[in-house]
Amino acid sequence: MKLGKEVKSPCVSLCKLKHEVCTGCGRTRDEIKDWKSMKRKAQLDTVHLAAKRLKALKKK
């Protein structure tokens, strides 16, 4: 079985929560806390959702 590459955290070290979402990376408080214990698929899903949240935050 071939393991996939490690998913890079979307953290950009600009941590500030607004309505439970980090304005730096777009992850929720729970996603940030759980990142290291997430399986690869969950991390990929989180990166995708975080990007969508960041885009929405920047529109406001």
Rank of each mutant, 00 (worst) to 15 (best):
V47K: 07
H48Y: 06
A56F: 09
G4E: 10
E31W: 00
L17S: 02
V12I: 12
M1F: 13
E31P: 12
G4K: 00
L54Y: 04
T23M: 10
K52H: 03
K16Q: 10
L49F: 13
K2P: 15
L3I: 02
E20A: 10
E6T: 03
G26L: 07
A56M: 07
V47Q: 06
S37M: 02
K8V: 06
D30M: 04
Q43E: 03
V12C: 14
K5M: 11
E31D: 13
R40L: 09
L54D: 13
C22E: 02
T28G: 15
L54M: 13
M38S: 05
L54C: 13
C15A: 05
K33G: 12
K52N: 10
C25T: 01
R27F: 07
P10F: 01
K55V: 11
K8P: 03
H19T: 06
L54P: 15
S13W: 10
L49P: 03
C25G: 11
G26R: 01
I32M: 15
I32E: 13
A56R: 02
E6I: 02
K60L: 10
S13Q: 12
V7S: 01
E6G: 04
E20M: 04
E31C: 08
A51Y: 09
K33F: 14
V7L: 00
C25R: 03
A51W: 05
K5C: 05
Q43Y: 02
K60I: 11
V12R: 04
D45C: 06
G4V: 00
K18H: 09
R27L: 09
V47L: 12
L49W: 07
D45W: 01
K16F: 11
L3V: 03
E31G: 11
G24P: 15
K16N: 14
C22L: 01
A50N: 05
R53V: 02
